[in-house]
């Protein structure tokens, strides 16, 4: 069928378009990582995917930003290599705000690479000497940034290249959702007219959905190990997802525990409706009510404009469709198998 070919095409596209484009240039770290106010420091910034030699040092701009208003501009800027910049900063004696220390953002604007930012790059500690260099914070320095439009994915600290997991880990959950919806629709149909075919479909969709759920959980654990530090940190999203999957595991135990298939099918169908009703709060509502490491946890839907830019959307949406169609394809195989088995068993009886 055409949609099976479409799923293959979309998944191939997802793998190619998800893996081949580079990340936008970023700053991995600056050295030194902390300084006293009133100091003159020579700061080195290390880039990722950057091509600093690609343009003249005088066209590159480098700031240390205190907040959206206050910033410092680099005085002497030298390009040491494609991935290393060196600049001199004169740190003012006083901080613009109150507090004994502050974390300054490093911002580099390159005519060809575009702008890159490292939040909290340099820790600035209030020094004790009151009279030294007389530099002051610049107001509204960070402007006229170069925004480069090309097919690249955003650079994010800690995550780096693993941002591409968005096209593989996340669609698992979309596929799960579509399959479980199909499952509950068929369960309701079965309850309304008692045809065994609908029960077969409901069971097959739930089973395939569960497969995608397990894959989503396991891939999430692998990703979490490198983004959050450990595979299982008892995060609310992880816990509630595990509960949701267990609810669906119980659906199959319930089905299997009846000798008469008709009776088991009816009870399983009722259970499926309740399982689906619990799925939505478990996956989408409760995790948003507590602090979570998972994106989209703090009130806003996951993959708002903060997590997903327009380039990523070009791969992400086809990925969802591709993986979901693959899920329905596999579920279709499962349904056809069950139909056959039921036929053979009826001959035997």
């Amino acid at each position: 069928m055409w949609w099976k070919s479409l799923s293959v095409v979309l998944i191939v596209y997802t793998i190619l378009a998800g893996l081949l484009p580079p990340l936008k240039p970023g700053i991995t770290r600056v050295a030194p990582e902390s300084a006293h106010s009133g100091q003159v420091i020579r700061l080195q910034a290390y880039g990722y995917n950057s091509k600093y030699t690609g343009s003249d040092a005088k066209d590159i701009r480098f700031w240390l930003e205190y907040d959206s208003l206050h910033a410092l501009a680099a005085q002497e800027l030298r390009v040491l290599s494609d991935t290393c910049l060196e600049a001199v900063f004169t740190l003012p004696v006083r901080m613009p705000g109150t507090g004994q220390n502050a974390y300054l953002n490093a911002i580099i604007d390159h005519p060809k690479d575009g702008v890159s930012l490292l939040p909290g790059a340099l820790e600035l500690v209030q020094g004790d000497s009151a009279e030294r260099v007389g530099a002051d914070w610049g107001i509204g320095l960070v402007q006229d940034l170069h925004i480069i439009k090309d097919f690249t994915f955003p650079y994010r600290n800690v995550i780096y290249e693993s941002i591409r997991n968005t096209y593989f880990h996340v669609p698992m959950w979309f596929a799960l959702m579509f399959l479980f919806v199909a499952s509950v629709i068929n369960s309701v149909r079965y309850l309304r007219n008692g045809e065994l075919e609908y029960d077969r479909r409901a069971a097959a969709y739930a089973e395939t959905g569960l497969l995608f759920g397990v894959l989503g959980l396991v891939t999430g654990m692998l990703w979490a190990n490198y983004a959050w530090g450990k595979p299982w940190s008892n995060d609310i999203k992880q816990l509630m997802t595990a509960v949701a999957l267990l609810v669906y595991f119980a659906y199959f135990i319930l089905r299997a525990s009846f000798d008469e298939p008709e009776k088991g099918a009816r009870l399983a169908a009722v259970y499926n409706v309740f399982a689906f009703a619990s799925l939505v709060p478990l996956l989408y509502i409760i995790p948003r009510m507590f602090a979570s490491l998972h994106p989209g946890a703090t009130g806003n839907p996951a993959f708002g404009s903060q997590d997903l830019d327009n380039t990523m959307r070009l791969v992400f949406y086809p990925a969802i469709l591709g993986w979901s169609l693959l899920g329905f394809w596999i579920a279709g195989l499962r349904i056809r198998y069950q139909r056959l088995e039921d036929k053979v068993l009826q001959i035997e009886v």
């Binding site: 995550i159 780096y160 290249e161 693993s162 593989f168 698992m172 894959l215 396991v218 692998l222």
Partner: peptide, 19 residues
């Protein structure tokens, strides 16, 4: 190494093996 790209490889492998 190399920007955690092998995490992506691992995720794709897990999905492939699972399916």
């Amino acid at each position: 190494e190399t920007g955690k790209i092998y995490v992506v490889v691992g995720v794709i492998l897990l999905i492939f093996v699972g399916i």
